[in-house]
Computed example of a mutant assay.
Amino acid sequence: MAFYQFKREQHIKSNISRVWDFISMPQNLKRITPAYMGFDIKTPDLPDAVYPGMIIAYTVRPLLGIPTTWVTEITHVVPQQYFVDEQRVGPYKLWHHEHHIKPKDDGVLMTDIVSYSPPMAALGRIANTLVIRQKLTEIFDYRTKAFDEIFTG
Score class of each variant (00 low, 15 high):
84 V>A: 09
26 P>I: 05
37 M>D: 09
75 T>M: 06
42 K>A: 00
86 E>P: 08
107 G>W: 09
93 K>D: 12
72 T>S: 11
20 W>S: 04
93 K>Y: 04
40 D>S: 14
78 V>A: 14
109 L>F: 00
34 P>V: 05
91 P>R: 15
90 G>E: 03
85 D>E: 10
60 V>R: 11
81 Q>T: 12
70 W>K: 08
86 E>T: 08
109 L>D: 01
60 V>E: 02
54 M>A: 00
20 W>P: 10
76 H>E: 15
18 R>Y: 06
36 Y>V: 08
66 I>H: 06
91 P>S: 14
28 N>S: 10
45 D>R: 14
101 I>N: 10
105 D>F: 14
65 G>I: 03
44 P>A: 09
94 L>A: 05
23 I>M: 06
33 T>N: 03
35 A>E: 13
27 Q>P: 02
49 A>K: 15
26 P>E: 01
39 F>Q: 04
25 M>R: 15
16 I>F: 00
71 V>T: 07
25 M>L: 14
92 Y>P: 10
75 T>E: 07
93 K>Q: 15
94 L>F: 13
106 D>V: 04
22 F>L: 11
69 T>M: 06
100 H>D: 15
76 H>L: 15
30 K>V: 10
92 Y>V: 00
26 P>R: 05
33 T>V: 11
85 D>F: 04
29 L>I: 14
52 P>D: 02
50 V>G: 03
75 T>A: 08
82 Y>C: 03
92 Y>G: 08
18 R>C: 10
60 V>A: 10
24 S>M: 01
45 D>K: 14
35 A>Q: 12
40 D>T: 12
32 I>G: 03
22 F>R: 07
87 Q>A: 01
97 H>D: 12
65 G>T: 11
86 E>L: 01
64 L>D: 12
104 K>H: 13
90 G>C: 03
29 L>F: 11
50 V>P: 00
71 V>G: 03
66 I>L: 12
26 P>Q: 08
63 L>R: 11
108 V>K: 10
61 R>C: 05
47 P>K: 00
39 F>A: 00
62 P>H: 08
56 I>S: 01
96 H>A: 06
40 D>Y: 07
85 D>Y: 02
74 I>C: 12
89 V>G: 02
18 R>Q: 11
80 Q>W: 00
93 K>V: 11
94 L>V: 14
61 R>D: 00
51 Y>N: 05
32 I>Q: 04
